Computed example of a mutant assay.
Amino acid sequence: MKLLKRFLIVFSILLIGGLAVGFFWLRSLFQEQSASEVFSLNESLSSRRILGVFAHPDDEQLVNSVFVRAKKSDPNTFTALVTATKGEAGEQVPVVARQKELGIIRKAEALKNGFAMGIDEQEVWDYPDSGVPEVPIQELKEKVKASFEAYRPEILVTFWPESGATGHKDHRRMGLVATEVAKEWKFNSKNRSYPGPRYIAYVITPRKAFLTLGGEIGKFVAENQPDPTHSLGSETDSKLKGWEIHASQGDYVREAYGIPARILYMIWDKEFYYVVDLEKQ
């Protein structure tokens, strides 16, 4: 019995040690040495108006900390979010509604989560899910221009056009449209009362993690995005609440990454951004 007890103790120690080594190895894949950690983007960039331009309901989960910490650092910071589609082509995980009504459900989820994150103004457009690149680009640009006029952001948060954070074609197109509008606005700002956003903050996904664990899509994303300049700690409670609100996507993290969301956010514990100062372009 003593020998068995000793064996079990040694086995337990080795198992715990192995799990600890595995955890810290995984966590190292989700770090970016080039990024300087800040509490909030608006505080670090001395800005008080933020607009996010994205493609699908639940995309805001990738940039949750930007919006939540904007209010924590300065309650007077104005935040707005544009979502180009209602996500009607998505897969339900779990199934919570008739598929033909999924767009209605996901639009409501996006609006509810935006409210929970403290976003002041929010729009969910009606462009086709997975069909954004087929929409005339000038039409999309006019819509984004109208959002600039309405919300007058100093910081634009969007996808890096070459990678879209996940490789999704809708993400890449909305990042391209938002970027072109911001740059054109800045170029033509002399005759405008609003000079356009000074900064574009592109959400960047962890390169080593996507290269190691993401297959061909992960490799594409990692090889087509810049090194991040800024990082923010993850607002885990808000993100977990967000997945509860996005009930039709509530098991997305488990399905996509193979682990519960709470565990993922212990490993992927930061958001990363590549920030461009348009006044220095």
Rank of each mutant, 00 (worst) to 15 (best):
S40I: 06
W268E: 04
E134N: 14
V135T: 07
A247E: 06
I155G: 04
V124M: 12
S46E: 14
S130F: 14
I105S: 00
Q138Y: 12
S65L: 07
D269G: 08
V53W: 00
E184C: 06
V203E: 07
V203R: 06
W243D: 03
D269Q: 05
Y151D: 08
L8Y: 10
K72M: 13
P206Q: 06
Q122T: 09
Q281F: 01
S28F: 11
F24E: 12
D74I: 03
G215I: 04
Q138F: 11
E88W: 06
N42P: 10
V157G: 08
L19G: 03
D59G: 03
E244Q: 13
E43S: 08
K112N: 13
L14W: 07
I263F: 15
G196C: 04
D277V: 01
A247M: 05
A80D: 04
A247V: 08
L51S: 02
G164P: 09
L14R: 08
E101Y: 08
L176R: 06
V53Y: 05
R152K: 15
K86L: 05
E154F: 12
P136F: 04
E109T: 05
Q225H: 12
V177W: 02
D58T: 05
Q33H: 11
Y194D: 00
V10A: 13
N42S: 15
S73D: 07
G218A: 14
L4D: 09
P57W: 01
V203G: 09
F78E: 09
P133R: 05
I104Q: 11
G52H: 04
P260H: 01
V21T: 15
S73W: 02
L29H: 02
A256S: 14
P75L: 02
G103T: 02
I50Y: 01
G103A: 06
D227M: 11
I13Q: 01
G87R: 05
I16V: 15
A222H: 08
Y252G: 05
P75V: 01
V253C: 08
E223G: 11
P260C: 05
N224D: 10
W125V: 00
R262K: 12
G118P: 12
E37M: 07
D170T: 07
V21S: 13
D237R: 12
G87D: 03
E279L: 10
S147L: 13
S163L: 10
V221R: 04
Y273C: 02
K239D: 01
F67A: 07
D59V: 07
S231A: 14
R198T: 09
D277W: 03
V82Q: 00
E142V: 08
V135I: 14
K190T: 09
F78I: 13
S231E: 00
A80W: 01
A110Q: 15
G258S: 10
K72Q: 15
G22L: 10
R27C: 06
D227P: 01
V177K: 03
V95Q: 13
S234E: 06
R69V: 09
V157R: 04
S147K: 13
P260A: 05
I259K: 06
I137H: 10
A70I: 00
S130K: 15
A116N: 11
K86F: 01
E223R: 12
R6W: 15
S34C: 05
K190Q: 11
L45Y: 07
E223T: 09
Q138W: 11
L19C: 12
A110R: 03
I137R: 14
L19E: 09
D170V: 09
D59F: 07
G196N: 00
N191C: 11
E184H: 11
S34D: 02
G215M: 08
